[in-house]
Amino acid sequence: MKQRLLVDMDGVLADIYAQLIEFEYQELGIRQSYEKMNGTSEVDTFKNALEYIFSDGFFRNLPVMEGSIEVMRQLNEKYELFIVSAAMEFPKSLTDKFYWLEEHFPFLHWKQIVMCGSKTVIKGDIMIDDHFKNLDYFDGKTLLFSQPHNSSGNTKNHTRVDSWSDVAKILL
């Protein structure tokens, strides 16, 4: 029986920081640097982050994380793979996220997509996420995908990965 692998979307498959940087630059002419973001949340870093995140189409047009498509294709063959997103926090994102996955990860079946409110109800063997709040309760193996908001602090029992190449080295 294959192990169940759960993969987050925002900050893991989709580059939400790149999108926020671009939105803020287009609107305010401010170009944030990743170095200045370390240790701060998206809301603390970007003046209008919530406005951007709640806008129509924000999640539909997120850039894809480098290397994620090919590694996910391989992981899909080896694991019982599910995309798990706490999308209910941003209701406008539901359709956007579905069509984004369909466009960039067409090898995934719609039955492999879980949109939820809290990830505490999700069970599996391995979880890849960029938020401690989703990994800390998880009973299985956890991979913390590096993002500016999780750069400081103790990773606890989580294995930090900085790229999809790191994920491949561990899981393939």
Rank of each mutant, 00 (worst) to 15 (best):
F82P: 14
K47Q: 10
R73E: 12
L81Y: 13
V71F: 11
I16V: 11
T40V: 11
M65T: 08
F46Q: 03
F23M: 06
F82R: 14
E51F: 06
L62Y: 08
V43A: 03
E24Y: 02
I16P: 03
N38A: 03
G57R: 15
N61S: 13
F82W: 11
N61D: 12
L62D: 04
V64Y: 04
I69T: 13
Q19N: 06
Y17A: 00
E80S: 15
E35R: 09
A86Q: 11
F82D: 07
D15E: 05
L75V: 13
S33K: 08
M72L: 15
I53A: 05
M72Q: 06
Q32C: 02
E80I: 14
F46N: 03
K47L: 09
N48Q: 09
G29N: 05
D15F: 02
V71S: 09
I30S: 00
E35V: 09
F90Y: 15
A18Y: 01
S33D: 03
E22S: 05
S41F: 09
E22K: 10
P91Q: 07
L28Q: 01
D15T: 04
Y34G: 01
F46W: 01
N76S: 14
Y52A: 10
L75Y: 12
A49P: 10
I83N: 10
I69E: 08
V84Q: 08
Y34C: 00
M72H: 09
